[in-house]
């Protein structure tokens, strides 16, 4: 029962965000937009965390500046562009689909196609078991088989 309660509590608890209340915008709609964008932006210090999740000073600075820009009336795309202009596509946790990232996005699918093609070719070329015609047993073979089977019954 205790365990169940603990599990339930853990399941219900929302992951804590690093943004402390003093950083948050008063307008809940803008704050939500800022949080959503912040989750897509990589913290340059901890690298696999978003700026929204990170405690690093630089992540805090970026959170503050992102919010300032939203408060000034910029759109999500404008704020995102502001950060990308300074840190490059690397700052986006979800890399954009463009020329330099084609291999990244399409590579796995290309490999899959090649692998499926190779497997297909391999299995088609190998003579299947069903394809070899079944030659009926000769009278001699039948006699031997019957003898063996009878032999098995006795033991």
């Amino acid at each position: 029962m205790k365990r169940l309660a603990l599990a339930l509590m853990l399941a219900v608890a929302a992951p804590a965000l690093a943004a402390d209340p003093s950083e948050m915008l008063k307008d809940p709609v803008l704050e939500k937009k800022a949080e959503d964008l912040g989750k897509e932006l990589r913290c340059l210090v901890c690298q696999n965390e978003s700026i929204e999740d990170s405690n690093a000073d630089l992540a805090r600075d970026l959170r503050v500046i992102v919010r300032e820009r939203f408060a000034k009336g910029e759109s999500s795309d404008q704020v995102k562009q502001y950060v990308v202009d300074r840190y490059g596509d690397y700052v986006l946790l979800n890399p954009p689909f463009k020329g330099t990232t084609l291999v990244l996005w399409l590579g796995p699918f290309a490999l899959l196609v090649v692998a499926v093609g190779a497997a297909f070719a391999f299995f088609r070329r190998r003579p299947s078991v069903n394809a070899t015609p079944v030659v009926p047993l000769s009278t001699e073979e039948k006699r031997r088989l019957d003898a063996l089977l009878k032999d098995g019954d006795r033991s």
Binding site: L58, D61, I65
Partner: peptide, 14 residues
């Protein structure tokens, strides 16, 4: 001073 606007304009990571 924080939030280090100029440093961020320079793309500083540390």
């Amino acid at each position: 001073p924080a939030p280090g606007r100029t440093a961020i304009d320079f793309g500083v990571t540390g």
